[in-house]
Structure formats: C-alpha cells, structure tokens
C-alpha cells in the first residue's frame, strides 16, 4: 500500500460493563511499519478524536507485543486477532476495532478472559511435578509425538477460537476449543498421560467436548494455526473409548 498521510480508525468504545457502547473515529499521523498497538499508543499519547475534540484515551490490554501472550486480542476489521501482529499497512482503512464479544467487557477494547483460564484449571492443564520427594526422571516422549504436541503447546489462550465459535456464548456453558486442545497436549505427555482419565472426565461433563457443533471456525481463526478440530476429533475418539470403559469396566 502506498504511503498515507494519516491512519483512520473507528473504535467501538464503552466506558464500563454497564455503560452503552458508541463508536469514535480517530485520525493519526501515518508512520511506516506500524501495527494496531502502535496506533493505539499514538491515541493514548494524544487523545483527540477525528473531530478534533479531546477524549478519553482508548483502553486496551497488551503485554508481550510479539503475539505470544494473547492479551491484545480484539476484533480488527471484524476478525479476532492480536493488535500487536496486525500491521496497519496490511489492513483496509478505516480500520474498525471492537472488543471480543464473547467475553465480559471491562472497558473499551479490554475484556475479561478469565473463563478461559478457569477452563484450563478445570481440565487439569498441567503435568504433575514431584511431591515431597524426588520421583526421578519421567519417561521420554517419542520424537513423532513431540512434533505435533509442540504445535498444540503454541496456544496462548487468546480467545480467538472461542470468539468465532457459535457454541460459545452467554446461552451455553461450552468451555471452547482451546482448553480441549490442551487436554490432548497434556495427555500426550508421558507423565501427563498418567492422569489422562482426570482430564477426559472433565471434558465429558456438561459444557465439555460434546458441546462442539463442528462449525470448525476455531481452526480457521487460530492465529497460531493450531489443529484445534483435529484435537477435538481425537478427543471425541478418546472420550468415546473412555465412556465404554466407564460403562463396561477396565483396568
């Protein structure tokens, strides 16, 4: 795209969870190689809207600035993605920014993604470490497994998959694709595998894996290209087998 004098942004704003939302337009001076985060920082530096009126700076979250923390996730031109990884030069203008709609709004572009972390706690998304004494080194992971497990480990719990999923919403208690994929990751780990039934039984409860409706939007929008639908299908197989074990008995 040719160099432009200014960048125009239309931002959906809301002062707080109970306030009503409105849009505000901003025009900021163009600089090459800017990302959306840089544009938002520019607004914070000089909080004047396109009409020339002084306004409250736009609130948003960001931590890592390199697409590994997931906190600056927002709707950029209608698609859920990270502000730090969205280059202005690649976006059509005016750039529309809005908060993720699936999560409770805090203010402006900032949402509360706690339900994602609660789901990780629920599904036991960790590997047990040694207790009061050293249990020695655990079994090794085969290289073939390591390869695909590494891809799953790239999940940053950003919430894009939950945002695009038609079954994650206020009417449903579906935990969403991210935490289900983490069950596959930790069950693939040779030590994590020792408590695989704990994780499987969690996703076999209400709001677990069977709430998936196979729209497969998650895998389309995942910024880390994690094979979320493969994880879900694989765990459909594992939970089906687990159901038979629960019903008919197993050792």
């Amino acid at each position: 795209m040719a160099a432009q004098k200014e960048i125009r942004l239309i931002i959906k704003r809301q002062a707080g969870p109970e306030s009503s939302s409105y849009t505000e337009e901003f025009a900021i001076p163009y600089q090459p190689n800017m990302n959306v985060t840089a544009a938002l920082m520019e607004i914070r530096k000089n909080p004047i809207n396109a009409a020339g009126k002084k306004t409250e700076p736009v609130i948003w979250e960001s931590v890592c600035l390199e697409e590994v923390c997931g906190s600056c996730s927002m709707l950029i031109n209608g698609k859920p993605r990270q502000a730090c990884a969205a280059l202005i030069d690649n976006l059509s203008q005016p750039i529309h920014l809005a908060p993720l709609s699936t999560f409770p709004l805090v203010r402006d572009l900032m949402v509360d993604r706690e339900q994602l972390f609660d789901a990780l706690k629920k599904v036991h998304a960790w590997i047990e470490i040694d207790g009061i004494f050293d249990l020695g080194s655990g079994p090794r992971m085969p290289e073939r497994t390591r390869k695909w497990a590494y891809e799953l480990s790239k999940c940053m719990t950003c919430g894009c998959c939950a945002e695009a999923c038609p079954n994650v919403n206020a009417k449903s208690n579906f935990m969403g694709p991210a935490s289900i994929s983490q069950v596959r990751l930790f069950n693939a780990h040779p030590t994590g595998e020792m408590s695989k039934e704990v994780r499987l039984s969690e996703i076999m409860k209400s709001g677990g894996i069977t709430s998936c409706g196979n729209s497969q939007n998650c895998v389309e929008v995942c910024p880390k290209s994690i094979p979320l639908t493969t994880s879900i299908a694989d765990l459909n197989r594992k939970t089906t087998i687990q159901s038979f074990k629960n019903m008919l008995g197993s050792f």
Binding site: A164, N167, S172, N214, S215, Q216, N217, V221
Partner: peptide
C-alpha cells in the same frame, strides 16, 4: 437454539454447513 449463528461474520464452508 443454544447456538449464536455467526455465518455472516465467518463465512467459512463448514460454518455454512453448521
């Protein structure tokens, strides 16, 4: 009825199937 249809926002083939 528990789903929130979003096919106009995410017009992927499988979402149309959904």
């Amino acid at each position: 009825l528990k789903a929130k249809q979003n096919v106009l926002k995410y017009g992927y083939f499988r979402n149309w199937g959904f």
